[in-house]
Every structure is written in structure tokens, then in C-alpha cells.
Design a protein around this nucleic acid. Structure first.
Length: 374
DNA sequence: AACTCCGACAACCGCGAAGTT
DNA sequence: CAACTTCGCGGTTGTCGGAGT
């Protein structure tokens, strides 16, 4: 049995479109539109093409105001950040980038951005690919990346890549702009099944809602300004992580100002880490099942100058550049701070033994210690 | 010059969602 | 409300051209 074919495959042309076909399709749609039926369209205009193929050709190539190639740094950052936030929902990402198509962004991600993110790490693995000269292996590598239900990467093979995802509060300077973006993103995420802290029904999955177990009281006067009007975009997989029993922030206390002090089990056991914050910091670590272990691993590898797998995230901005050791500032981080949804590590250590190589995002402490005085 | 490899991108395919009857 | 059709999405594959050997 199986599914009925959408068109007569024997009577349909495949492969690249000729200029004549393009012209036919374009002029017809410009004059008549699609009439809401792509399947019937090719017959109407005498094209031996599948309706789906026509649709794809129009949407990805012939449609007006389509931009091809030449992605800007800002677009790169947006794609990266959205990918980390919502995974491979290319159509949603494309909707945030005027003139870009989902296919374009997907291709761009697969051929360039993914490498930009992952390409500099795991030299051994890269060497293996080059030695074997195998495209197939490259595809297998990307296939080996396992995604959770939200399409966020969960790499099940920690030996080749430690994938660290961090979403964090948006810098004040970008609030207005980001708020606008968030309105549309919010709608889209609601469509995807998420909800927000000011929604009525508490029985559904939350996206971007601080976990009451770990987060400060929801008193607006005490909240960081970013929470007043904007959402804290966070993938549900990230929420899963913070909801896990073994969240890195296993201890939370609130003082009279509503300021929360969160720290980890690691503090009491080994590292003496302590962070003060009044907004949630989300750490989503690669293997999706042993967060504390991964967190510890991250700390130790950083401290031992062996950024095994993390360098893909930090190499450009960190390695071989001055490393902020404790509460100081770093111009590299400032650059990162100016991204719309900054992707940056935040590991705060007050333990002298672990200060060398500690990563601290510029301005992070200001945000963490914000108490509503601004 | 010939061959191989690889990156880039267009296009295809299958599936689930949404819409219609 | 089930059955059917169409749309839209994301993953994958095919093709082409340039770089490297």
C-alpha cells in the first residue's frame, strides 16, 4: 500500500530548473498567485514538474526579495543563537531573518556555521576525516549527533564533542531591540507548545519560565529589568536540564531583597563554587543525563588547560587571549555581550585554586548581583 | 593536464500537520 | 469524526565547480 504519490513520477521532470521553467512559474504566480493549490499549478501552466517542486522553487529562489549568500556576522550570530535556543526549526529561524529561506539557512548551517562552531575542536577527529577523505564520514559525524525531543543537540558520544549550551540574560543595551524580536519568537514558541509565566494555565510545559525550585520570587519590583517586558528565551531541553534533580544549582537561598544565592553540590564537595544571582543561569550540558558529572568535567578540563571539546566554543574568543581570572573585564567578552542572544560561558570561581583559566563573562556579575537599583 | 576531493547549494523525499470534505 | 488531500518542514542526496595533488 503505502502513501499515494503526490504526482505521476514517471511524467515529471526532476533536477535543476531551466530559465524557461523559472520564467513560466514566476510569471504565472505573479499574475495569478498559487490559487492555494500547488499540486494543480504545474498542469495549469504546462510544466512537467511536481507541485512540491514548484513550491520549493518559488519559495527558495523565485520569490521576490530573496537574499542569497553573503550572510552577515549579525545573521551568523542570530542563527547560532536561535539554533541553540530552539534547535533546527529552520522555518522559524528564517522568519526572523528577512529575505532568507529556511533551505538557505539550513544549507548555510550545515556547510559553514556548524563548522564554525564545531570545526576547530577535536583535531584528531578532523584528521581522521581528512585522512580517510570521506564525505560519508562527515555525514556520519553529523548523524551521530543525537537530538532531544526539542531538536537540541545531545551528543551521546562525549569522546568527540562536549557540547555546552548556555543561555543567559540579555544585556540591558539590547533590551528594546530584543523585546521586539521576542514578541514574534514568543508567538512562535507558543505555537510550538510552550507557554510563559504570565499565561494562565499552569499545567503545560513552560518555556522561559524560571523554575520555582531554583528561582527568585516573582516580585516584579525585585526582578531584573529584562524580565519585566521580555521573555527569557530558553529551549525546553534547557528547562529539562534545570529541572533535573541533578541541576548544577541544587541549593538556593533567598535573602530579604529577593536576591537568590544559588550554588552547586560541587561547592560543598570539591570546588567551592558559589554564585550569587537573581536571574536563572541555565547550563545545558552535552550528555543530557549526568549533568553534575559533566559540570565537574567542564570545570576540571578548563582548569587543567585542556579544553577538550570546549575549545570549539571558546577558541576564537578565549584561547591565546587574556583570560579573565576572577572579577575582571575582558574586551572579548564585551563583544560577546553585544550579541542579541549572547553565547558565552559563565563559570564563576571564588576558589583560588581554580581561578586560573576561569571563564567569566564581562558584566555577568553586574547582572547576577542586580538588585533593582538601576 | 588529469584526476580526486571537497564545499556549496539546489533539489528531492518522506513524514506529520493542517485543512477540507 | 474519519478519510482524504495538500502543505510545510527538516533531513538527505545529487550535482557542479574549484582547489589540491
Amino acid at each position: 500500500m503505502g502513501r499515494a504519490p503526490c504526482c505521476d513520477k514517471n511524467n515529471v521532470k526532476k533536477g535543476p530548473w531551466s530559465p524557461e521553467e523559472d520564467a513560466k512559474l514566476k510569471s504565472y504566480i505573479e499574475q495569478h498567485g498559487t490559487a492555494g493549490n500547488w499540486i494543480a499549478l504545474p498542469q495549469k501552466i504546462g510544466l512537467k514538474r511536481c507541485g512540491k517542486s514548484c513550491r520549493l522553487r518559488w519559495l527558495n529562489y523565485l520569490r521576490p526579495n530573496i537574499k542569497h549568500g553573503g550572510f552577515s556576522e549579525e545573521e551568523d550570530n542570530l542563527i547560532l543563537s536561535f539554533y541553540i535556543s530552539i534547535g533546527s526549526r529552520w522555518s522559524i529561524i528564517a522568519a526572523q531573518l528577512p529575505g532568507r529561506t529556511d533551505n538557505d539557512i539550513k544549507n548555510y548551517w550545515n556547510t559553514k556555521l556548524k563548522k564554525k562552531l564545531f570545526g576547530k575542536q577535536r583535531k584528531n577527529f578532523r584528521g581522521k576525516i581528512q585522512k580517510q577523505g570521506s564525505r560519508k564520514l562527515g555525514r556520519e559525524m553529523s548523524n551521530s549527533m543525537v537530538y532531544d525531543h526539542n531538536n537540541t543537540i545531545i551528543n551521546t558520544n562525549p569522546s568527540w564533542l562536549d557540547q555546552l549550551q548556555i543561555l543567559q540574560p540579555i544585556p540591558y543595551s539590547n533590551q528594546e531591540r530584543v523585546n521586539n524580536d521576542h514578541v514574534s519568537i514568543r508567538k512562535l514558541l507558543i505555537k510550538l507548545g510552550g507557554k510563559f509565566s504570565n499565561d494562565d494555565d499552569d499545567n503545560e510545559i513552560n518555556i522561559g519560565v524560571p523554575n520555582p525550585q531554583y528561582d527568585p520570587p516573582m516580585d516584579n519590583s525585585l526582578m531584573h529589568p529584562m524580565y519585566h517586558n521580555s521573555i527569557n528565551l530558553m529551549s525546553s531541553s534547557a528547562m529539562d536540564v534545570i529541572n533535573m534533580t541533578h541541576s548544577p544549582f541544587t541549593n538556593t537561598q533567598y535573602d530579604m531583597d529577593g536576591k537568590a544565592a544559588c550554588w552547586t553540590d560541587i561547592e560543598t564537595r570539591k570546588l567551592g563554587e558559589r554564585m550569587e544571582l537573581n536571574t536563572p543561569i541555565v547550563l545545558a550540558v552535552n550528555d543530557g543525563c549526568n549533568l553534575v558529572g559533566e559540570f565537574e568535567h567542564m570545570m576540571y578540563t578548563i582548569n587543567s588547560q585542556n579544553l577538550d571539546g570546549l575549545e570549539m566554543l571558546y577558541e576564537d574568543m578565549l584561547i591565546n587571549k587574556p583570560v579573565t581570572t576572577t572579577l575582571g573585564r575582558s574586551s572579548e567578552w564585551e563583544d560577546m555581550n553585544n550579541l542579541v542572544f549572547p553565547l558565552a560561558p559563565l563559570v564563576v570561581s571564588n576558589n583560588e585554586d581554580h581561578q586560573h583559566g576561569t571563564l567569566l563573562q564581562e558584566g555577568a556579575l553586574d547582572k547576577l548581583r542586580y538588585t533593582g537599583d538601576e
